[in-house]
Every structure is written in structure tokens, then in C-alpha cells.
Simulated assay, not measured.
Amino acid sequence: MRSTVRGGFLGRLVRWALVLVLVFGLVGPAAVVAIYRVVPPPMTWLMVERMFQGHGFDRRWVPLGRISPQLVRSVIGAEDARFCEHHGFDFNAIQKAMAHNEANSSRNGPGKIRGGSTISQQTAKNVFLWPHRDYVRKGLEAWFTVLIEAIWGKPRIMEVYLNSIEWGPGVYGAEAAAQANFRESAAQLSPAQAARLAAIIPKPLAWKAARPGPYIQKRGGHIAAAAGTVRRDGLADCVLR
């Protein structure tokens, strides 16, 4: 009799645990993503962390239509040339990154790691998750990437990305970055300015768009050329209609 009662209790406990996993692991994130399809996402984990580190906070949300197409093309050229083609994950880029990291490690030991994250993955990480790498975060990043691709679509992903990423100490989003670096609105960025902003995305606390050193000048030139290819080949057509 006791074993039957105990078995029934354990069965109910397992069912409730599954319900909680379903609600908080599947339904909850989907509901939040659906809300952020129309509402600008608030402060991110990284923004809060930077404030505790003593950085300020400058973020000025603007719709995608008030961001220069030059910047859209530049970030696609710099960060994710197949943004309009994939559904959140660029498996070719992931394989190339893994091969590079394995070769680099075998030659030189632990060194610089190349990532294969798409703009969609970067957006999922920046908006919903903490900045430090671990397996739990990567798993959640994949799930949120699937959700934003399904619920938001490419234009909204780009809009949130360009309004959320870090572009300097306490500087977040394209409008704040354009004003801080060039005293221009995001809508008025020139091709060279847009390329420089895209060039500093990997290291926004160390690299400067307004006063670029030789490396950023060279990198900006490459990105400007890539942006030209993006325009010529229609690689941003899913965003710039």
C-alpha cells in the first residue's frame, strides 16, 4: 500500500516537474520573445554588468528606418554575410571556425578563438542572456535564436541587434554610437563611418571608430568593400526592402 502511495506521489511530482519545464523552458521564453517583437527590449545583462563596472549608460532606440542602410550593409558584410540566407545558424561558418580553432590550438596551444555566431545568435545572446560563455548559455542561445527567427523575422532581428549591441564604454545601439563617435544621427552615417562602426563591434571597449588606428582603418576599408558586395549582390534584401 505504501509503495503504491509513494509511486503515485512520485508520478505526480514528475508530471508537475514536466509542466514547470514546459512553462519556463518553452512557453515562457516564447511569450517574452513575442512581446519584444513590438516592444523594445529593456536593459540587457551586459548593460547592467557594465554599469556596476563604472560605465555610464547611453542608449537611444530608433526604428530600423532611421538607421543608415550603409550601417546595415556594413554589419552584414562584417559579421554575417549569409544573414538573409540562413535560418539563424550558419553551419558552414561554424565548421570553418571549428577547423580554424583546432588548427590554431594544435600549432600554438590555446590562442585566439574564432566564433561562428550569426547576427541572429548574437542578438539572442545580447538581449536574453548573460555575456559569459558556458554550455548552458549556448543551449539557451540556440533556443532563443530559433524563437526570434520564427517570431520576429529578419528586419526585427536587425533592428534589435543594431539598437542593443555595445559600441563603446556605456554606449549601446547605433544612434548613441553615431552621436558619440561622429556627432551624427544613425540615419546620416556615411559609408566610411558605418564601416568603422562595424569594424569595432568585436572589441568595442578597446577599438575606436572616431579615432581609428592603422588596424581599424584597414579593417574599415575591408568592411566598406564588403558592404559594396552586400549591396551589389542583394545580401541585405531581407532587411532593406
Score class of each variant (00 low, 15 high):
R2F: 05
S3M: 08
T4D: 04
R6A: 10
R12W: 04
L13D: 00
R15Q: 04
W16I: 05
A17H: 00
L18Q: 10
V19M: 03
L20P: 00
L20A: 12
V21F: 05
L22E: 01
V23T: 09
V27M: 00
V27I: 11
A31Q: 07
V32K: 02
V32E: 07
V33R: 02
V33C: 09
Y36H: 13
Y36C: 08
V38R: 12
V39M: 03
P40I: 00
W45G: 13
L46Y: 09
V48N: 04
G54I: 04
H55G: 00
H55D: 10
D58N: 15
V62R: 09
P63S: 03
P63G: 00
L64T: 02
G65L: 05
G65R: 01
P69F: 08
V72P: 00
G77C: 00
A78L: 07
E79I: 04
E79V: 01
A81Q: 12
F83V: 06
E85D: 11
H87P: 01
H87R: 10
F89Q: 02
A93H: 03
Q95D: 14
M98G: 03
A99I: 01
E102W: 12
N104A: 14
S105D: 10
S105E: 09
S106D: 15
S106Q: 15
S106P: 02
S106K: 15
N108K: 13
N108D: 14
G111S: 12
I113W: 04
I113K: 09
I113N: 02
R114V: 09
G116P: 00
S117W: 01
T118E: 07
I119K: 08
Q121Y: 04
T123I: 06
N126D: 10
F128E: 04
W130G: 03
P131I: 08
P131G: 13
D134H: 15
Y135I: 12
V136E: 11
L140N: 05
E141I: 03
F144A: 02
L147A: 08
A150D: 09
A150Q: 12
I151D: 14
G153H: 00
P155L: 11
R156K: 15
M158Q: 03
V160T: 11
Y161R: 01
Y161D: 10
I165F: 07
W167D: 11
G170W: 07
G170Y: 07
V171N: 11
A174M: 15
A174I: 14
E175L: 04
Q179R: 15
Q179G: 08
F182M: 13
R183W: 11
E184V: 11
A187S: 15
A187P: 05
P191Q: 13
Q193P: 14
A194I: 10
A195C: 14
A195K: 01
A195T: 14
L197E: 15
A199E: 10
A199M: 06
I200A: 12
P204K: 12
P204V: 10
K208N: 15
A209G: 14
A210Y: 04
Y215E: 15
Y215S: 13
I216Y: 06
R219I: 10
R219M: 07
H222N: 08
I223H: 04
I223V: 10
I223Q: 03
A224Y: 00
T229G: 08
V230S: 09
R232E: 06
D233K: 06
G234E: 00
